[in-house]
Amino acid sequence: MAERDLLGYGGEWPEIVWPNGARLAVSLVVNFEEGAEEQAGDGDAHSERIGEVISVVDPGRRDRGQEQIFAYGLRAGLWRTADALERAALPATIFFCGRAAERSPRLARMLVERGHEAACHGWRWRPHADYDDGAREAADLDRASAAIEAATGERPLGFFCRGAESAWTRRLLAERGYLYTANGFDDDLPYRDAGTGLLVIPYALDTNDMKFFHPNGFVRAVEMVDYVRDALDVLEAEAARGHARLLNIGFHLRIIGRPGRFKAFQAILDELTRRRDRLWIARRIDIARAFARAVPC
């Protein structure tokens, strides 16, 4: 039976007040994956199947339609998303796949120059749990980190991979000086990995636009907006009772960048702006550093 931590803080959460005096921190994440997904046209055994519709192209054949669905994220969706963040003066963390940053360095650098954090999303958009040994994973992690730094001018200190980490991921990150991993879906507050001391800044897949691409998820933009509002209401009430919390809201350029869904992005930014004096809206690297100061090893 695998060893699992099902207790966490056990209802005794650390006393944290975020740097601006709020008890609820909000992390906005934008995923920059386009060009790093599996595509037969790039030499992969098959193309990514999850998109606006499930791909019907046979494995091994080039799926130009799926390539174009991904390309929309950078050709159109990025500009809507980046400009809306700038108008709202809200900071985000960008989860960059290394190969995506290498293919579109001008776009990657533009986002960081606008004040957003460059975090590592692996070399490819794939689960790190798929790696059979630590050496191959380490090589891809180094390749991704170097590509992101070359493209953006910023060395990533945060990490998140699609799906799940391998048995070696956190050790490899700690050895390379990473400050945090976001591959944790199990808490509303950061915590330290017991084995490595690495900070875990939990992420979330419910307040996430990927649910537009899943049958049990959002259909209309308002559904995501309402869901995020409900999450804010619950966590703000807990914060008012003295419990520090973190809310993660995740977006993808090819998903939220489409006109019919972009309305959700804009409405969520408007809602955060309306509540701004009660929240700390921050990049994940800043959340990690604030937590490390508040809850030292």
Rank of each mutant, 00 (worst) to 15 (best):
C120T: 01
G153L: 07
H128Q: 11
D132M: 12
D142Q: 14
D140R: 03
G134P: 05
P127F: 00
D130L: 14
W123V: 08
A118N: 02
A118K: 00
A138W: 01
A129P: 03
R136C: 07
A135H: 07
R126L: 11
S145W: 05
D142T: 13
A139P: 01
G153D: 06
G153R: 06
E117Y: 06
S145N: 05
E154C: 14
A147R: 08
A150T: 07
D132N: 08
H128A: 14
R136P: 01
A147G: 07
D140G: 11
Y131P: 02
A129C: 06
A129D: 01
A139W: 04
R136G: 12
H121G: 09
D130Y: 04
A146S: 09
T152D: 00
E137M: 06
D132V: 15
E137W: 00
A129N: 02
W125E: 07
W123H: 11
R136N: 10
R136A: 15
A150M: 04
R143M: 14
G122H: 02
L141T: 13
A119I: 10
C120I: 05
Y131F: 15
R124L: 12
D140Q: 13
E137S: 12
A146R: 03
R124S: 09
L141E: 03
D130F: 07
R126E: 10
Y131N: 06
I148N: 03
E154L: 11
A138L: 11
R155T: 13
H128V: 09
R126H: 04
D142C: 15
W125C: 07
R124A: 14
D133V: 11
A138F: 01
A118I: 00
I148Y: 03
A150V: 05
R124H: 13
A151Q: 02
P127W: 00
W123A: 04
D130Q: 12
R126Y: 01
C120R: 09
R155A: 13
A144F: 02
D140W: 00
R136D: 09
A129L: 08
D140L: 00
A138C: 13
S145K: 15
W125K: 10
A144L: 03
A118L: 02
R126Q: 11
E154V: 15
D130A: 10
H121N: 09
D142L: 15
A139S: 06
A135K: 08
E149S: 13
A150I: 05
A147S: 10
T152C: 01
